[in-house]
Design a protein around this nucleic acid. Structure first.
Lengths: 144, 144
DNA sequence: AACCTAAACAGAAAAAGTTTCTATTTAAGA
DNA sequence: TCTTAAATAGAAACTTTTTCTGTTTAGGTT
């Protein structure tokens, strides 16, 4: 599994807890907040506290397994990178508002150096929401 | 002043505190966090507490005078809309990383309905950083 | 100019979210 | 198996944010 080698390569350990966290993200429809993940982990790891969840979320985000989702107001949320990269590879994500599926956007419409409104672009944060193909099909079936 | 009519039109009151807040944002180079604004207000309003600052920041953001800046990690920050709109008008902002100047981006490269990575785009969060024209001039003068 | 009312205010308090710390346990390479 | 750096648990502290209550004020009206 790709995620596991990312962890190893970062010099981190593949612990039962981290395996479980990744599994929960795989099963989850949509990004998870630390408390939500904690809720789900408690069944299997009754002694697991929130601080540990925070630590692991950050560790997994740092090594590229997860990414930090913006655009949920002030909430902190994470989701699985669908195609994790080892390098600090610039890419964005699009999240299906219906099922939570994550798509990876390799080519951003905003590129460094572009002139925008008289400013030379040097950085950007983009978080997209959309409807994925399977959900679009379901939508049209439902209404048609 | 544009901001003042936005406040009135929203049925809100133009209080001395709000005038001062807007003035501080005008003077400030760059977006401000609630605590930072609170620090600056304390000189003039010694009895002003943080809760009041939060309340007013949200009120001013709701009526379009300020906007909530994304992309500062988990920090909450606000800045003045450079060209406030009455309508719930979709636009983004580009912030100069050197001086904090805010530019308004009316035409976003991402538009609803676009197909991206197999998803139909329905929403997006964009926060841009750049170098404004005056700062670009300073840059080239400094290095040349 | 005084009056009225909805809105803003102060301040305390609570709640929520997050980080830090120390001692103990564990994954995984040697 | 041994060793060690990393992960863990749990408490505690800390920061940020929200809620609540009673008091004051802006701004339209009489």
């Amino acid at each position: 599994m790709e995620a596991h080698s990312l962890i190893k390569d970062a010099g981190l350990k593949l612990t039962p807890r981290r395996r479980a966290m990744i599994a929960h993200f795989s099963l989850s429809s949509g990004p998870l907040a630390p408390v939500e993940l904690h809720e789900r982990l408690k069944a299997e790891f009754p002694r697991c506290g929130l601080p540990g969840v925070y630590r692991n979320l950050e560790a997994l985000a740092d090594c590229g397994v997860l990414f930090r989702v913006a655009g949920f107001g002030r909430e902190r949320r994470y989701a699985l990178c669908s195609q994790p990269h080892h390098e600090e590879h610039h890419h964005h994500h699009i999240i299906c508002i219906s099922c939570g599926r994550v798509g990876q956007v390799e080519e951003c419409l905003y590129q460094e150096g572009m002139m925008i409104d008289g400013f030379r672009l040097v950085g950007h944060l983009v978080q997209l929401r959309g409807v994925c193909a399977p959900c679009a099909v379901k939508e049209s079936e439902g209404s048609g």
